[in-house]
Design a protein around this nucleic acid. Structure first.
Lengths: 345, 345
DNA sequence: GTTTTTTGTTTAATCGATTAAACATACATT
DNA sequence: AATGTATGTTTAATCGATTAAACAAAAAAC
């Protein structure tokens, strides 16, 4: 609906030259194309006067580059991803890229849709937080030779660039921390998922028990389905508490799980950490506000996001740049919810 | 980086016809353009076989429409805006639009940048959550005849479409609710801002006191600057508590303010609601998790977002559609933080 | 005074799709 | 047979920018 925009042609007409000259001058190619000084100055003046802004569509159509990145995440209304999105947005802008965000809701099908929509929109590349069962999508991108970087989650069997968290180490540290604080019956609530990072968190947790010489009890590990989190968490916690090896500490593998779990723990009237110590992945304001601040696994969000953009941009510049596979370290931020266990008298 | 995409021309060559026919057929204009049945079928078959997807850039360049909406918000990492963004994203997709989100950080300058970047990207229209002092930007869009809808905030003096909350009524209700629950010394923490919705929240609060026949005390109202929220809130709460008319209830005008305020209230060891009742704007998970669930002003986010998209889309379809100015009603969701005041013995 | 080189500028193809207008046929009317 | 009307299909301009190649005129070389 804009008033007709100023085009190269308008400037060319006004300056009485061809559009070629205008293009050369406005792209700083006066030297190579040896444009006359006076004409160049004249063109610049007119461009300024007309407030000329090039048409990105035309540029993109010609160049095949849109200076646009597609960011696929699970859900922008989840604080974790919203944070990531913000960081990616800011970082991309530094390199002159615009970001288009799409939420997959952890559904492979939606993820497919997004990839297709964004490819149609000719994004130059993708940053993807993969959902379960999307290996074929990734393979498709590889086959099509589309540039992309996986963020936060990756597939160990696929040869892709990625920037993820060392989930095994993070979960191990979380478990080790609880053990150190005197807890012995430690449960983990994770998602039921084939995703590698989730499997790694489970493995890290179990390894921490093993190193701590604690015999793992099957009922300590609950893997809940994405779409029935609320109910399964309740049942899971009930089960853990009814166990012969009643848990005295609980690790949540993600922020969403922690929110749901803590709500239920509240409703049971359990006191944290006396009745149940807590460590969770994913920092959030909610944790600060809890009556007992929650110990959490701090993920280097800023670095994760920035590095992903960096890698993608360098791939876009040089398509045969070396593959980068980066695992970043998390840090256990100790708060009250995992304070030293008071031995039961 | 994709393998060369299939274009109309490729199909035309394969089918031994001109690109015009292919275009007609694939756009369902076989009838009007009376394309032969066999040829049409052939073209469709080839298109399917080649897995043809039209190039949006070319389409857009020709049509002048990009089927893209620019969404300008304060900060995507703020849950309130992230929610809005998600709703807008989903709703826009239903109409075939893609959304590009930009965060202004409440800074007029960044907002300008975003508008320019997005205009260059040829977005068809905007949905804008305005920052302070951006009236001239809005006026610029009006002058340029760019389609847009203001969301959540609007300028009463500018003739624009908008979808906002009835902030006066919402704040009034919040105040009235507290009065009804027996609180008499009610404070309000708001942003220091010229923005209308903020002024309205303050006015609504004051009107509720007046109707409740409570004499307003200047120290009950704190307007804190955006960039020094933390410190100013602390000072403000200290002041309210030290007052001769010590507050027994507090309203927060936004989610961010509530988070900062509650943290400080926690650290002071005050108990909600016995020492201080609370009502806040903006629902959030954090409120559910608080030891005493927070009474909040429920904004009809879903409807706000959907309606904004709807209005914008109808404007894009018909540029002289009637101007829509919609104020939606919020609802006070009563929880424990504003329970009936227990009279001090 | 030619020929070559340098300097300055224009032409025209291209990216991929859309669409009015022109152009062919075939068929129907009178 | 001449004319009119459907029915199919192609041509070519267009959106706005880029850029190799062609062209022309002036300056340098011999």
């Amino acid at each position: 609906m804009n008033k007709k925009k100023v085009s190269l042609k308008d400037i060319a007409e006004k300056a009485q030259v061809s559009t070629a000259l205008v293009s050369y001058v406005l792209n700083g190619k006066e030297k190579e194309s040896r444009v006359g000084h006076e004409i160049a100055a004249k063109i610049k003046a007119i461009a300024r006067e007309f407030n000329y802004e090039p048409n990105y569509l035309a540029k993109s159509l010609r160049s095949g580059k849109t200076q646009t990145i597609g960011l696929i995440i699970a859900d922008i209304s989840n604080p974790f991803f919203a944070n990531i999105a913000r960081i990616v947005e800011d970082e991309a802008k530094k390199y002159g890229y615009t970001v288009i965000i799409g939420s997959s809701d952890e559904q492979a099908e939606k993820s497919w849709d997004l990839i297709n929509v964004l490819l149609n929109r000719q994004v130059d590349g993708f940053i993807i937080v993969s959902s379960e069962n999307t290996e074929e999508q990734i393979q498709y991108l590889i086959d099509k030779n589309v540039a992309f970087v996986l963020l936060d989650r990756h597939f160990p069997d696929l040869p892709t660039d990625f920037v993820s968290l060392d989930s095994h180490k993070a979960a191990f540290d979380a478990g080790a921390h609880l053990i150190e604080q005197g807890y012995r019956n430690i449960g983990l609530i994770a998602y039921k998922s084939r995703l590698f990072h989730m499997k790694e968190r489970i493995r890290g947790y179990r390894d921490s028990l093993e190193v701590g010489q604690i015999a793992f009890q099957p009922e300590w590990l609950k893997e809940v389905a994405f779409h029935t989190v609320e109910e399964e968490i309740k049942a899971g916690i009930d089960d853990m508490l009814a166990s012969d090896h009643k848990v005295d500490a609980l690790i949540f593998a993600t922020y969403r799980l922690a929110i749901a779990g803590l709500k239920y723990i509240n409703s049971l009237g359990l006191k944290v950490p006396d009745d149940l110590a807590i460590v969770s992945f994913g920092q959030a304001e909610a944790f600060d506000l809890y009556y007992c601040p929650i110990t959490y696994v701090l993920q280097p969000m800023e670095e994760l996001g920035k590095t992903a953009v960096e890698i993608l941009v360098s791939k876009l510049k040089n398509s045969n740049a070396e593959q980068q596979q980066i695992l970043m370290q998390a840090q256990v931020m100790v708060r009250d919810s995992s304070r030293l266990k008071v031995p039961v008298a």
